[in-house]
């Protein structure tokens, strides 16, 4: 069941990602929908599940939108899942502020990791404007907080048996 929910979350995020690329291509510069299931699993489940979700969603993203380095997004999102899972296990990030900070950090650090791995493999890099990073950070934080609030509501409606468990 957990796998089915994870697959559904990733599929929805991928649909959103491809749809955004089709209808508002400029928006993909500011938001990465496939970071949302990663954040949800890192904060509500375990570090391990966040890494798996990050790996799968990143590889799917690579298949559809990465022309050169297949596996780049998979690697970046696996690392992000590992890092956020570790932070989520040590700090209480399940309040609005924590969720915002988690989403904002994911979107910001994701850009840096992406650039780092590209540099490692000899790709040509261009500097990302500061305003793009700021907008991306804020939008990422808001979206993550919003999505996690919805997920929390759904989990609450489904009953206390579904209260998230934490594993490290």
């Amino acid at each position: 069941m957990i796998v089915a929910w994870a697959a559904l979350a990733i599929a929805l995020a991928l649909v959103l990602d491809l749809g955004l690329g089709r209808f508002a291509p400029g928006a993909t510069r500011f938001v990465d929908p496939l970071l949302l299931p990663l954040a949800a699993y890192a904060l509500r489940r375990s570090q391990r599940s966040a890494m798996v979700v990050g790996c799968v969603s990143g590889l799917l993203q690579d298949y559809w939108t990465e022309p050169r380095l297949f596996g780049l997004n998979g690697l970046v999102k696996t690392i992000l899942g590992w890092a956020l899972g570790a932070f989520g296990a040590r700090f209480d990030l399940n309040r609005v502020g924590g969720r915002f900070a988690a989403g904002a950090s994911l979107h910001l650090v994701g850009v840096a990791l992406d650039a780092g791995v590209r540099h490692l493999f000899g790709e040509v890099l261009v500097p990302v404007p500061a305003w793009v990073l700021i907008v991306r950070t804020v939008v990422g934080g808001l979206l993550t907080a919003g999505v996690l609030a919805i997920v929390g509501r759904v989990a609450a409606v489904r009953g206390p048996a579904r209260v998230p468990r934490r594993r490290t």
Partner: peptide, 15 residues
């Protein structure tokens, strides 16, 4: 026909 676009700063691709 264009299926989707990816217009990030480091990678700009059309499917």
């Amino acid at each position: 026909s264009v299926v989707t676009l990816r217009l990030s700063d480091q990678s700009r691709v059309v499917i």
